[in-house]
């Protein structure tokens, strides 16, 4: 900082001359960065596309080549928002329907998962008792919960939400609990000297200290939710990208399935990055100790 202050008087005049060229240099540098980051994936994508095209161009190929996929799904690509009633709606609506289910189930899992994680993380006894149970339950595949929840709820909509919830909650609970347990003794000492009460401790020390761990759980959870919703929707039906795929399979529209896979991948990627970004902003990049 001092260096800047000292430099300023000497450079008052040239500044106006220097500035445009510095801006240009910055543009050039960020442009070069974008090229460096974007070119490799684009090249690979192109190469893979060409290989796929060659492999699937034969008359007896089981799967369509990319050119055919684009041609057959062109209507879906250019008009994601059409609505012919019932299940016959654009891909944007299908994705939004799935995202809405994920949002509700995931948010419930976040609230319950962080809450339970905090409780468990604070008690050795609860941790010892519950951890093995959670470790077993978390390996149960999402779809295995579906028949049980259909039996319980007698309705497909809450069942789908429950499957999301139960899939996402385990990593959130476990990571939150680990985060709480790993709060350094130093921070606990500070809280003790200040005689912070339960809520003050939770707000000023516990949540921020555990945040890096909690966000690890949230990120794993959102990925699992997205995996689970697609599978659940295939069985439950109605509007949603999962059932769209099932429907396309029944109608032998392989190209539609491929397009849907691309969208699912992109949305899953965006969800992951979104949670990572929020975590980055909230923890300001402070790593877990």
């Amino acid at each position: 900082m001092n260096a800047n202050v000292k430099l300023q008087p000497a450079s008052t005049e040239p500044v106006s001359i220097v500035r445009p060229s510095r801006a240009a240099a910055l543009m050039q540098r960020s442009g070069r960065y974008a090229v460096q980051q974007l070119v490799p994936p684009l090249v690979i994508l192109l190469v893979l596309g060409v290989i796929w095209e060659m492999l699937c161009s034969g008359a007896d190929a089981a799967l369509p080549p990319p050119s055919q996929v684009v041609a057959e799904t062109w209507e879906l690509i250019i008009d994601p928002f059409y609505d012919n009633g019932g299940n016959d709606v654009g891909l944007a609506w299908q994705l939004l329907a799935s995202l809405q289910r994920v949002a509700v189930g995931y948010l419930l899992a976040v609230v319950a998962g962080v809450g339970l994680g905090v409780l468990i993380g604070q008690s050795d006894w609860a941790m010892r008792g519950l951890d093995p149970i959670f470790q077993v339950l978390r390996t149960v595949p999402p779809l295995a919960w579906l028949p049980l929840s259909l039996a319980g709820f007698q309705d497909s909509h809450p069942s789908a939400l429950f499957v999301i919830f139960i899939t996402a909650i385990w990593p959130i609970i476990i990571n939150t609990a680990v985060g709480i347990r790993n709060i350094p003794q130093d921070y606990r000492n500070v809280a003790q000297v200040l005689q912070l009460n339960g809520f003050e401790y939770f707000k000023t020390i516990m949540l921020p200290a555990a945040a890096p761990y909690i966000f690890t759980g949230l990120r794993i959870g959102v990925g699992l939710s997205w995996l689970a919703i697609i599978a659940a929707e295939m069985l439950i039906g109605g509007v949603g990208i999962g059932f769209f795929i099932w429907d396309a399979w029944n109608a032998s529209r392989i190209s539609d399935i491929i397009l849907a896979l691309v969208y699912i991948g992109v949305v899953g990627f965006v969800l992951d990055r979104l949670v990572a970004f929020v975590g980055q902003r909230i923890t300001r990049g402070i790593p877990a100790n």
Binding site: N189, V190, V193, L194, Q195, P208, I286
Partner: peptide, 17 residues
């Protein structure tokens, strides 16, 4: 513990957030 005996720790123990 209480604030009438405040402590300066060797590893500073500031809250990093």
């Amino acid at each position: 513990p209480g604030p009438d005996r405040s402590m300066v720790f060797q590893n500073h123990s500031l809250l990093p957030w």
